[in-house]
Design a protein around this nucleic acid. Structure first.
Lengths: 214, 214
DNA sequence: CCTGACGGATAGTGAAACTATCTATAAATG
DNA sequence: CATTTATAGATAGTTTCACTATCCGTCAGG
């Protein structure tokens, strides 16, 4: 398959494929001459993964590069690679507010209480802590005292069950890269789905409390 | 309060405030002269809302404008305004794939089964359907047959409970605009929090299945 | 052998979200 | 009251990002 074939197989323009090659998101094909190279299924799969991350996950090119690095690092176990990929997907937060430290404490208590086994340096801790800070600053709860992460407790069982399902569905017999790719796409897509269902539940709850007008 | 005061109160630069004024996101102050205007708490609140939508919710200026339009439209009930604000927050999906129609059917069955009272034209239906399409195209389930929305069923109870809590916490005694603002910020922030907890649950599940390496 | 595709390099584009400058006025300060 | 600073409103410029287009010399296929 030449580059036009790769383009046809993925729906991505040749110019964009060249851009991904330049940016190091896509490994080069096997060179057959100074201006010829062959691409294969691994390239098709990689391009589809990139597009899923960009379109569904709304990741930037730099973040995609970090995720792919985790996918490709053979020295990492599947669990480690998933963790690294997750980390790359967490948006940066500003953790310099005075409330942030106590928000992190609340998060850690939340993790212990709900029996969640998370690396202590996982960016997702800060991500959750930041929401508590914003909630506090927006007037939820008492001013100056950070909102307690306990308000999220009721979410945990459902999300745990869902996560266990997602992880259970990763095919055990395929190669590591396939497994990581599978899990990464699942993570992204399920996140969007969970957000959609949250909004549905919210509209439903709003209808029940505030009622339809007509 | 003059514009410098508004800038100090919100942490947003004067240049950016002028930009928001130009873009119609922020109502002008009360003019006291040809080049003077007074700003008040309503402006501070509005700027904070804009920043929350932009920073936490990652909405674009056009989407923020749509949300604010729903907030400000006095002819809409609280429930209607929340719905409109939600709609403005849903990212556009491409619904022209052949699988999309059956994905929507699956979503509607999901809504009925889980007793979710959603407007039939709510964009969030398409948002969820799109995830089913992507999941199907990524190799989850059988090729050609759209993945069933039932895989999300276990998420519903926790999200419903959480949504009921969020809605219950909207202060009943404040004015409509305050209520909508409160609910909109809550929606955004809780969405990010739910995503963070999902990722935590995923890392926990990954640890349990694939184990730490050392 | 000629037309078109290719790899590789470089430059350009368009959207988005600010940011900076300018002008005429008004406020604040000594 | 003189001077410095701030302001509204208009216009133009900047930065980043994700592509997109062009060029050049090389190569494949009919």
């Amino acid at each position: 398959m030449r580059i036009a074939g790769l383009s046809a197989a993925t729906g991505v323009s040749v110019a964009t494929l060249k851009y991904y090659l330049r940016e190091g998101l896509l490994h080069g094909g096997a060179a057959t001459a100074v201006n010829q190279a062959r691409y294969d299924e691994s390239h098709v799969r990689r391009v589809k993964l990139i597009r899923a991350l960009v379109e569904v996950g709304d990741l930037g090119i730099a973040e995609v590069r970090a995720v792919l690095a985790a996918v490709d690092d053979e020295s990492q176990s599947l669990h480690e690679a998933l963790g690294a990929a997750q980390d790359a997907m967490v948006p940066a937060v500003n953790d310099n507010t005075p409330l942030f430290a106590s928000a992190l404490e609340s998060v850690d208590a939340f993790l212990t209480r709900n029996d969640l086994d998370i690396r202590h340096d996982a960016p997702v801790r800060a991500m959750l802590a930041e929401t508590l800070v914003v909630l506090t600053e927006s007037g939820w709860g008492l001013p100056g005292i950070v909102v307690d992460a306990a308000i999220f407790d009721s979410l945990v069982p459902g999300l745990k069950e869902q996560a266990a399902f997602e992880i259970s569905v990763v095919p055990p017999d395929s190669d590591r890269v396939s497994q990581v790719e599978y899990a990464v796409v699942g993570t992204m897509v399920f996140e969007v789905a969970a957000a959609a269902i949250r909004r549905m539940a919210l509209e439903d709850a709003s209808a029940k409390r505030f009622g339809p007008r007509r």
